[in-house]
Design a protein around this nucleic acid. Sequence first.
DNA 1: AGCAAAATTTGCGTGCCCCGCAAATATGCG
DNA 2: CGCATATTTGCGGGGCACGCAAATTTTGCT
Lengths: 202, 202
Amino acid sequence: MGLRERKKAQTHAALSWAAVRLTVERGFDKVKVEDIAEAAGVSPRTFNNYFSSKAEAIVFRHLDRCLRVAEALRERPGEPLWDAITESVLRQFAPDAEAVAHPPVADAERWAEGVRVMVAEPALRGEMSRAGATAEAEIAAAVAELTGSDLRRDLYPHLVASAVMGAVNTAIAHHLRTDAAVPVSRLLTDALARFAAGLSTP
Amino acid sequence: MGLRERKKAQTHAALSWAAVRLTVERGFDKVKVEDIAEAAGVSPRTFNNYFSSKAEAIVFRHLDRCLRVAEALRERPGEPLWDAITESVLRQFAPDAEAVAHPPVADAERWAEGVRVMVAEPALRGEMSRAGATAEAEIAAAVAELTGSDLRRDLYPHLVASAVMGAVNTAIAHHLRTDAAVPVSRLLTDALARFAAGLSTP
DNA sequence: AGCAAAATTTGCGTGCCCCGCAAATATGCG
DNA sequence: CGCATATTTGCGGGGCACGCAAATTTTGCT
């Protein structure tokens, strides 16, 4: 990878990170695109060369994670489907060393609260759902590959993908709703296991 | 209901319908808020008294339908959960006599193609997903009511709601992808049954 | 190293969207 | 009928997304 692409990746990351940080700190509509660009050391116009909206920049990391689930899945052919899924999901949503270190946050509680406010923002919920749908398509493709089903004719891979994203979203929502007593990994395994078991009443 | 509220409901419907029709006919970004307002016989400013965005107006009917699923569910306590769910969903997504009559479309195929283009629009996918999430919350509440689970502490009602919306979305997507050979009702029952059966490989 | 080609960044201008505010208008009720 | 309450409308502001072309940076080649 040449210098060119490395710089692009850096700018991309810097922009999305700045977007998240500023939004968590100040709230969505108190952050202007201009602010994000400035924080990333780039001109306002350049922001829109990387992201087509403020919301997209903020949600980028989430989308990336979800897409990686599909990628991870493809690397586990042969395993029982739900084992492969659970493993792939857990890997992506494990507390990421780098990500944990990234927010140079003194006050973790304040940060968490900011995140709650952020994900409550309607404009972002829309973009997040959209990211989920995008990822879902990739996961469906991966599942089709693993199970030998037909992406266009069969409902099955789409249903599985839908369950996966449903589990992820539900687990994250639960985690944000209640206060971090239960680790996310437990919520995720639990949610996925329930789906695999047919959601019979508990 | 007084004249006042009836007029409001009329305007609301006229706006959302005009938004859909114009978008299907011309494409999302060739329709200005001004056009929609004009088609509904109302000032542009009034449009935003009813909907906070163009996308919201377009997606309104979809949201409404999904919310009604939750409502219908609450009216079926005592039944086995998945039976109640399947019944509620089918009722809402049955070919609606009024809705079928509404588009005064000469060319049905042209209309269908327009719909496909419309739902492909990124901005709308976001808003649709968001509507799905909103409905999901209501459905989760209904499920919690029916099964006596705790909306805040338990994952279960949220997982079920997620499955329901997943089934709905998947069925609709499949219907738009392939050409109307299979009736939506079959796709829906199938999708829901698969979820209830644990999505075991087919 | 030097230079030309290719890609990226930037500034500028445009069109549109969403909303706050206050005036005008319509409705409901005694 | 006339007042109190809602709704609609016009106006104006702030911002966002993007097309375009000029300026700058990176790359590949000699």
